[in-house]
Simulated assay, not measured.
Amino acid sequence: MAATGLTPSKAGPSRPSAPREAAPAPPGGAFARALRRNLTAHAFLIGAVLCFAVFSWYPMVREFFLAFQTTENGEVSWVGLDNLATVFNDPAFWQAWRNTLLFTVLALLLGFAVPFLVAIVINEFHHAQGYLRLLVYLPVMLPPVASVLLFQYLYDPGYGLLNELLRLLHLPEQQWLQDPDLSMLSIVVASTWMNMGGATLIYLAALQGIPGELYEAAELDGAGLLRKIWHVTIPQTRLVLSLMLLMQVIATMQVFVEPFLLTGGAGPEGSTTTVVYLIYQYAFNFNDYGAAAALGLLLLVLLAGFSAAYVRLSRAQDE
């Protein structure tokens, strides 16, 4: 016997359910609601801004005022341009700038070109790139003191490895860090080895983003290795090369660690005295913080002007 109740197919039309009432909006405006939704992100952002303000922005502003002040017996007084005059009249000022520019030029010839060439070589390997990347980046992970101790052993005039090799080849031994003509070049070699890992990985990432069809087309046109690098690799990585060149100049103009640890800062006959080391001397050896701040301000203005001019020239070339 069939059930007497109505089946769903025979049931009458269902009544539309009453619309649910919208939940009441939380108190506050749109900004307050967005702030509550992103409270964690804002907390991290505020922390980062405070860190930058305390450890970066405040010292820069303080340096600007300190460059025009002097402190004697705990009393601060304004001296105008006297600190700049002190810096300009120091004979070590011009020598420090010459040494810094020499280091920058040598570092561009080695530290800018060598990582790019190493990245090109690693990019040709297809099965051992992970190990090669680790091998290249390993010096960056070493503490700078450990790397400096290694190069002190290599450059030692008595039992150093480099002079041992020269003896085996019956060549004259060299005073790598004691000779004013070789000290800066020796520091550049050490600095290149210590810092090339990061640049090499950046170049390698840029090289792996180049389409393989471009190299295949170049090979069909009969291009060799050098022509492929000149006409394909360099144009395709021009943006990365430009950025790394700017960063390289800014970093090398502020060199301090390598000369300070390898040659004590000044080096033989002042051959490794750099601008940043001279700032260190003014502040911590001469207790003249005003002159140190004035020299730091000069370096800041120079690097800012170079960066602005470089970016403007790069944009003009792109247009």
Score class of each variant (00 low, 15 high):
Met1His: 15
Leu6Asp: 14
Pro8Trp: 14
Pro13Arg: 15
Ser14Trp: 12
Ser17Arg: 13
Pro24His: 11
Ala25Asn: 06
Pro26His: 10
Pro27Lys: 13
Arg33Glu: 11
Arg33Pro: 02
Ala34Met: 10
Leu39Glu: 13
Thr40Ile: 13
His42Thr: 13
Ile46Val: 14
Phe52Asn: 07
Val54Met: 11
Phe55Arg: 02
Pro59Lys: 13
Pro59Val: 14
Pro59Trp: 13
Arg62Phe: 02
Glu63Ile: 02
Glu63Val: 04
Phe64Cys: 13
Phe65Gln: 14
Thr70Glu: 14
Glu72Phe: 05
Gly74Tyr: 05
Glu75Trp: 10
Trp78Glu: 13
Val79Tyr: 01
Asp82Ser: 14
Asp82Leu: 11
Asn83Arg: 04
Ala85Arg: 10
Thr86Met: 06
Phe88Trp: 15
Trp94Phe: 15
Ala96Arg: 03
Ala96Leu: 06
Asn99Cys: 05
Leu102His: 09
Leu102Val: 11
Phe103His: 04
Thr104Leu: 01
Ala107Lys: 02
Leu108Pro: 00
Gly111Gln: 00
Gly111Thr: 02
Phe112Met: 00
Val118Ile: 15
Ala119Asp: 01
Ile120Ser: 00
Asn123Glu: 08
His127Gln: 13
Ala128Gln: 08
Ala128Thr: 08
Gln129Trp: 05
Gly130Ala: 14
Tyr137Phe: 15
Val140Ser: 04
Val140Glu: 00
Pro143Thr: 08
Val148Gln: 04
Val148Ile: 12
Leu150Val: 05
Asp156Lys: 03
Pro157Trp: 03
Pro157Ala: 10
Tyr159Pro: 05
Leu161Ser: 09
Leu165Val: 10
Leu165Lys: 10
Arg167Gly: 02
Leu171His: 07
Trp176Met: 12
Asp179Val: 01
Leu182Glu: 04
Ser183Pro: 01
Ile187Glu: 00
Ile187His: 00
Ser191Phe: 05
Ser191Trp: 04
Thr192His: 02
Asn195Thr: 04
Met196Trp: 05
Met196Phe: 11
Gly198Met: 02
Thr200Trp: 03
Leu207Asn: 03
Leu207Arg: 02
Leu207Met: 14
Gly212Ala: 10
Glu216Met: 07
Ala218Val: 01
Glu219His: 01
Leu220Thr: 05
Gly224Ser: 15
Gly224Cys: 15
Leu225Pro: 13
Leu226Ala: 15
Arg227Ala: 03
Arg227Thr: 04
Lys228Tyr: 09
Ile229Lys: 05
His231Arg: 15
His231Ser: 15
Pro235Glu: 09
Thr237Gly: 07
Leu239Ile: 11
Met247Thr: 01
Ile250Leu: 15
Ala251Tyr: 00
Ala251Ser: 07
Thr252Trp: 00
Met253Ala: 03
Val255Pro: 05
Leu261Cys: 01
Leu278Thr: 04
Tyr280His: 04
Gln281Ala: 05
Tyr282Trp: 09
Ala283Trp: 02
Asn285Leu: 10
Asn287Glu: 12
Asn287Thr: 12
Ala291Asn: 00
Ala294Trp: 03
Ala294Met: 03
Gly296Lys: 03
Leu300Phe: 09
Leu303Phe: 08
Phe306Gln: 04
Ala308Thr: 12
Val311Thr: 13
Leu313Lys: 02
